[in-house]
């Protein structure tokens, strides 16, 4: 495998930093009550989003879950509109109707939602559309290892394999579905093994190593673009935060959490950049600071944006148009 260029790696680092720092900021704001509803953070899972999405184009589709900030940012969202949606403002991606768990940006073909396992059939559908339209676009679906026990996972894998659709199933194994560990919920050791039942490639890789993620995703995306069909990728990571903010996490062993912190993806990438690419600490700090400026701008935009009018609640149930 060719070594990634410094430029590419720094770009991925910068995206991972953006995700981490944005979420850290959102965490503080949520804690003060300025954002309603639930809040699921992806802290510690940035390498997967960035490693996969760096292989994608704007015309490729990505579908995600309740824990979607990382994927949305990696896919290239306008951070201001994203922040405004989290704050429930008129200027948000969905005019305040969706919120944190339901972020949609058709301009970059991104969608997510709060029903576990629901994204997979939708991704099969966009893959089907790409194929029927004769495009070489691909469809990526991110989901947790918990979602791999839903019927939709198995039905979607079969359908995508049967119809040879350009779908990449990315299973983000952060070890927990709320309080339930993978060992408690899953009959097989690796979800990648489940690909066997559907006759497609199943790959397991280190999801905290952005280079490894990039490489396995690159192969799966290339396969899909060539019309050779779907792949299932399982990426090992760890949920460094609670399931949602406010989760007392009584079920999580302290030692396990501390161990996981040693392997978190940003620190790991920094080590590689410093040791193998000769990047200086100052350069890394500069990147962090530049991204923080963007984040502050986005938060300011969100906070100063108007609220939707109450009556707007009645709009958008249907779109206008159709055959009459």
């Amino acid at each position: 495998m060719a070594k990634l260029t410094q430029e590419k790696l720094l770009k991925m680092y910068s995206q991972m930093v953006l995700i981490r720092q944005f979420e850290a900021r959102i965490e503080g704001i949520y804690g003060k009550g300025a954002i309603p509803g639930e809040m699921h953070l992806s802290i510690g899972q940035e390498a997967i989003a960035v490693g996969v999405c760096t292989n994608l184009r704007a015309d490729d589709a990505a579908t995600s879950t309740h824990r979607a900030h990382n994927h949305l940012i990696a896919k290239g969202v306008d951070l201001k509109k994203m922040a405004a949606e989290l704050f429930g403002r008129e200027t948000g991606l969905c005019k305040g109707k969706g919120g944190h768990m339901h972020l949609f940006d058709p301009s970059i073909k991104f969608g997510c939602g709060g029903i576990v396992g629901a994204g997979m059939p939708l991704a099969v559908g966009s893959g089907l559309a790409f194929k029927r339209k004769g495009l070489d676009s691909v469809s990526v679906v991110f989901f947790g290892e918990g979602a791999a026990n839903q019927g939709t996972f198995h039905e979607s894998l079969n359908l995508a394999a049967l119809w040879k659709l350009p779908v990449i199933f990315v299973c983000e194994d952060n070890h927990y579905g709320i309080s339930v560990t993978k060992e408690m919920s899953t009959a097989v050791k690796s979800n990648a093994d489940r690909a066997l039942s559907y006759g497609i490639p199943g790959i397991s890789a280190d999801g905290n190593d952005v280079v490894e993620v990039y490489n396995v995703a690159e192969a799966a995306v290339a396969r899909a673009r060539k019309g050779e069909g779907p792949s299932l990728i399982e990426l090992q990571t760890y949920r460094l935060k609670g399931h949602f903010e406010g989760d007392p996490e009584v079920y999580k062993p302290k030692a396990e959490q501390e161990e996981a912190l040693q392997h978190e993806p940003i620190v790991r990438l920094e080590k590689i950049l410093l040791a193998e690419y000769g990047v200086s600490q100052e350069e890394l700090t500069e990147i962090k600071e530049a991204r923080q400026v963007e984040i502050e701008e986005a938060i300011k935009f969100a906070e100063s944006s108007p609220w939707p009018k109450p009556e707007e609640a009645l709009e958008d149930v249907f779109v206008a148009g159709g055959a009459f």
Partner: peptide, 16 residues
């Protein structure tokens, strides 16, 4: 609830 899904933002949620 006036036959709309529950919106996220609170001015709208309060409204429905």
């Amino acid at each position: 609830v006036p036959d709309v899904p529950i919106p996220f933002s609170h001015p709208m949620e309060d409204f429905v």
